[in-house]
Design a protein around this nucleic acid. Structure first.
Lengths: 196, 196
DNA sequence: TCTATCATGTAACCAGTTACATGATTTT
DNA sequence: AAAATCATGTAACTGGTTACATGATAGA
């Protein structure tokens, strides 16, 4: 996997949309939000412009025309280049075919969690559980809503699966701490006294 | 959740370790790797120095002494401040108690996957499955290895849960595409012809 | 007509990664 | 004694976020 000229996943979305039709950055920004792509890709208004610039510099998109509508600012329309099309395909295949190590924040927190007292951890986990269950309900509503084709919601289904797994994990974790006979609580609390 | 002065999760780990004993950046870097924290937190040698600087600027750690060992470069030892201790606790509680929306790369790819032909998608998913199963085996080996206390592996257990969920999802997705009677393959392929 | 919001873009700042630098050990 | 690796740090580049700017509609 040799380094991509533009690594940001927003760039992947830009290439994907431009492979359908040329657009100017603002329009793309709107389209992304309209399609709910902000659920799966992180971007802001400003970053869209940045990505266009980077893609242009890398030769993956090219300025196509500059139009003006009344006295509004000029709009620069970009189209995808053949190199851009190739990159789009290659990148997508890479992402789908090869899992990469990621760093979810909750995992990081777990690795340092012994710095908290077990009693507060249990409280926090219960709170998390409640919030996760809310998210689960929201995701379920989305997935069950009428859609053009379930393929367009497949990413939500994936999230749901992850959510479900996290909920199960938090449940088990709470039990491991609080189990009255073999729970980690006392040992953890003791260890906690020692330092702090 | 008012904005943190230093947002990088590496900073959280630094605070956690310094809450035990003062250290200099290089030593901390080594300690983190020795503890396998690089599985849950992304950092490089260089970023550790950066984070110390940021933390110092924010008043969460403070330079404590500057020592020199033979003709090696000077080492600057930092200690956590009371403000740092407070930030550590607050931040951890926030991370554990409140789930935040994240953007796994596979999810982003899924949201754009219709740009690929369904046949290659199935191939790629099968490849992914094989790699995921390897990771699962590796994670299982880790979790089953003898450890001081399972609490120190709780983060790996979490990862395992996510992995398991992803494997299940990929399985189902493959079936949805390839099912001979109601599979999405043909429709998807047709739609794909239209543009490109 | 005033205010709010939309449409479009630029610029400044900050954080993170990579590469570089250099003396000290250890290995061959 | 040469080569490799460790120990420690700095600097340059680059990417991403936030804030700012400004004319145009639309709503009150």
């Amino acid at each position: 996997m040799t380094k991509r000229k533009v690594a940001n996943l927003l760039a992947l979305a830009v290439l994907a949309y431009l492979s359908r039709a040329p657009m100017h950055p603002y329009e793309l920004s709107k389209t992304l939000r309209a399609h709910g792509d902000d659920r799966s890709i992180k971007f802001t208004h400003g970053s869209v412009y940045m990505v266009f610039e980077q893609l242009a510099k890398a030769g993956l998109v090219a300025e196509q025309e500059t139009t003006r509508d009344g006295q509004r600012p000029e709009r620069t329309v970009y189209g995808i280049t053949p190199a851009g099309r190739a990159e789009l395909g290659d990148w997508l295949r890479d992402l789908v075919g090869t899992p990469r190590h990621e760093f979810p924040a909750f995992g990081s927190a777990l690795s340092l969690i012994s710095a908290l007292h077990p009693d507060v951890v249990v409280d926090l986990l219960r709170q998390r559980l409640a919030l996760l269950e809310e998210q689960r309900a929201a995701a379920a509503a989305l997935v069950d809503s009428p859609a053009p084709h379930p393929l367009f919601l497949v990413e939500e289904v994936y999230r749901q699966g992850l959510l479900e797994a996290e909920i199960a994990f938090v449940h088990r974790f709470i039990e491991q701490i609080t189990d009255p006979v073999s729970g980690w609580g006392p040992m953890w609390a003791g260890y906690h006294e020692l330092n702090s």
